[in-house]
Amino acid sequence: MMGWLWAVQVILFAAGTGLGMSDARRKSTEVRLPLWVRMLISLTLTAAAFALWRDDPASSSKEWIFWGMAWSFIGDLSMAGIIPWRHPMIGGMLTFAVAHVFYIAAFAAALHHEGLDLMNAGLAVVAVFYGLVLIAAWLLLIRNPDAPRLFNIGSLVYGLWIGAMASAAAAMAWSLGGALWLTAVGGLLFVVSDTIIGAAAIGGRLLRHQGYWVWLTYVAAQMCIVYAFTL
């Protein structure tokens, strides 16, 4: 089943890219995946995480991955405006922050299963790296004196929380290695994706085809995190 879901997601993204490019040429706009493609990819990723958990119901790490993906799906619905929030970005940050709690729990559980601890040298090294990079990115790309204070402070706190998740993913890979290095890649791609969003939505620094690059890095990040536990 995992192979089929993975193939469906790749096909959906490729088809969405084609549709987005065609629409952009016709309307002279940015390339963007259609909304239905974005939501369907997110939904099938949630289904894949659920199937992974149900294939191994005793695995707490796989259960937490499912809940993380489920909350990510809610975050996608929020950012798309399907779930109404007064400020969709704030709603998205809140729901994705919950998703990252579950991802961190999954990484800690995977280490605990092997008799290891999340608090290791890998975590310390990568946490310092991500902390410095994310603070620099916030200062240079995201912070905007003209934006509401809530957005500026919220984006900094949320960015550091993403860094914590990415650091936990790297710490797990540091200890367990193998295919779980994909989770470290996923954490890094999450940082890239959300930095692009923050720089555009708050900092006003637009990247050409920004929406497309956000989803390319975001989908790759989620696939790395979900499917690493099947390998």
Rank of each mutant, 00 (worst) to 15 (best):
I11T: 12
N144L: 00
D56K: 06
M1F: 15
A200W: 12
D76V: 08
G115C: 02
H100C: 06
G16H: 02
A168P: 01
V125C: 07
S193K: 03
M1S: 12
A48V: 08
A184G: 06
P145M: 01
S155E: 05
F73Q: 03
A228G: 01
W64E: 08
R26C: 11
I41G: 03
A173W: 11
G3R: 05
Y227F: 13
S22M: 14
V157D: 06
S60N: 14
I153D: 12
S22H: 13
S42W: 01
V101Y: 06
L182Q: 15
L33V: 05
T195W: 05
I142R: 02
Q222Y: 07
D23G: 13
D55Q: 15
A109L: 00
S60V: 14
S72Q: 11
I135R: 05
I202F: 04
A124C: 10
A127G: 09
F151Q: 14
R149Y: 14
A171V: 00
A24G: 07
V219A: 14
A47W: 14
L94F: 11
R149K: 10
E63S: 13
L180P: 08
G115Y: 02
N152G: 00
T230F: 10
V214L: 01
R26G: 12
F66L: 00
L139Y: 14
W174Q: 08
M69A: 14
H100E: 07
V226Q: 01
I74W: 10
A109M: 02
I11V: 13
S59H: 01
L182H: 10
V125N: 10
Y103R: 04
I90G: 09
A200T: 10
I197G: 03
A7W: 08
V126T: 12
D76N: 03
F66R: 00
W6M: 13
M21P: 12
A51V: 13
V214R: 03
W181L: 05
A169E: 02
A109H: 02
F66W: 05
F66T: 00
D194T: 01
G187L: 05
L160C: 04
P88Y: 03
R26E: 15
A121P: 10
G204E: 00
M165C: 02
L116V: 07
T183M: 13
A15E: 09
A221R: 01
R149G: 11
L43R: 08
W181S: 07
G159K: 05
M172F: 06
F102M: 09
L132P: 12
D76S: 04
W71A: 10
A121C: 11
L40F: 13
L40Q: 05
Y218V: 06
D76G: 06
A200K: 08
A201L: 15
R143W: 11
S78P: 03
W67P: 07
L207K: 07
L116N: 06
H113D: 15
V125R: 11
A164R: 12
Q210P: 08
T44C: 11
L52S: 10
T46E: 10
H100M: 04
S61T: 09
T217A: 11
G92H: 01
F102K: 09
V192G: 05
Y218R: 09
W174H: 09
T195F: 00
H87C: 11
A24N: 05
L180I: 07
L19V: 12
G198V: 02
A136S: 12
M172I: 07
